[in-house]
């Protein structure tokens, strides 16, 4: 699964531009399930299990990642941008981006030698940042880029032991786990969605859930881990290597209590997410149609929404085990 994850992270798929990720996922799951691509670009798949399920189950992972969209080209060939999804300025300044053509840009700034006083400690506003693609004029820039083009933060994938650093771990971990679930034999039928546009407002999953019409949903995600030096324990939210995180509530969803409790008592490596910030596709899915009983299964991830996300493969394996177990419990009518 780690090799699959690395392949997925190397692909660029800012929200609304998930084509490369979608093509790769289809190449992986084709032959293992029935699938279609809907009007927005979601992959909707049906996995035939050994037994019919007592309830319709949807398992979701989103394909998109945060990125930047070009809004203006200056006469000198620099590109102004807005963020696609939430990216904080600290992880933009002096970072690299990659465009769909495979070419690179740099989010440049004034060198430290020319900054004075308080400026040294203050981040520029996003409006003050520009991307340098090596063009000397607007005309030269226009040969490579048009306003409306998107790019993503790039970062080398590295692995120390079981810990991986890569871009886009949010939510390629979920994609890797969902691909794995679809490729292996399943005891029960279930539906899957690889959804688009999560980072711009949980948009793909909304129509995917409407289409699949599930009674239960499992959302495979990556969530903020702040188990880093200098952060007090009560603010660390969840910790790497201590299992998949399940939430009781976040900014978008109050989770199904029965599913939450069952996950904690599953005997698998599971930790409660000790915080209520953030949100994920559950927010859209649990309000679909008449309502869907939903739980998010999240891999703890440090420095999420940066070019250097860090996660532990053991937590991803825990996510896989818990998803497999929950599908079986729900499909068998154990959690009705």
């Amino acid at each position: 699964m780690i090799e699959l994850l690395k392949q997925l992270c190397e692909l660029d798929g800012a929200s609304g531009n998930e084509d490369a990720v979608r093509a790769f996922i289809l190449s992986q799951i084709d032959g293992f399930c029935r699938w279609e691509v809907d009007a927005l670009g979601n992959i909707l798949a049906h996995k035939k299990g050994k037994n019919p399920a007592k309830h319709r189950i949807m398992v979701d992972a989103h394909m998109d990642e945060v990125g930047l969209i070009i809004t203006h080209i200056t006469p000198d060939g620099f590109l102004h941008f807005k963020t696609v999804g939430g990216i904080d300025t600290p992880v933009l300044l002096f970072h690299r981006v990659r465009f769909a053509g495979g070419f690179y840009g740099v989010i440049g700034g004034k060198p430290i030698h020319l900054t004075t006083g308080e400026e040294k400690k203050k981040l520029p506003k996003i409006e003050q940042l520009t991307i340098d693609i090596g063009a000397a004029s607007a005309e030269e820039a226009a040969q490579k880029v048009s306003v409306g083009d998107v790019c993503v933060l790039t970062g080398e994938t590295v692995q120390n032991g079981t810990v991986v650093k890569a871009k886009a771990l949010d939510d390629r971990v979920g994609c890797a786990v969902l691909i794995t679930l679809l490729k292996e034999e399943s005891d029960f039928d279930f539906d899957a969605s690889f959804s688009v546009q999560e980072e711009v407002g949980l948009r793909g999953a909304r129509v995917a859930a409407h289409h699949l019409n599930p009674e239960f949903a499992l959302v495979l995600e990556a969530t903020t881990a702040a188990d880093i030096a200098g952060v007090p324990p009560e603010k660390q939210v969840c910790r790497l290597g201590e299992g998949v995180a399940v939430s009781f509530m976040d900014g978008a969803t109050v989770y199904d209590r029965v599913l939450y409790q069952a996950a904690l008592e599953s005997g698998l490596p599971v930790q409660p997410k000790r915080g209520t910030s953030g949100g994920n596709n559950s927010g859209a899915v649990h309000l679909s149609r008449d309502g869907v009983r939903t739980l998010a299964l999240s891999v703890p991830c440090r420095y999420i929404h940066s070019a250097s996300c860090v996660a532990d493969v053991r937590d991803m394996e825990a996510q896989l085990c818990l998803a497999r177990w929950m599908i079986r419990q729900i499909a068998d009518g154990q959690l009705s």
């Binding site: 203050k122 120390n160 910030s277 420095y303 250097s308």
Partner: peptide, 18 residues
């Protein structure tokens, strides 16, 4: 290979201190 930490904004008071 290693990486500088980045504290998520909702856990710090605004921008990080530099």
């Amino acid at each position: 290979p290693a990486v500088f930490c980045s504290v998520p904004p909702h856990l710090s008071d605004g921008d990080p201190s530099f």
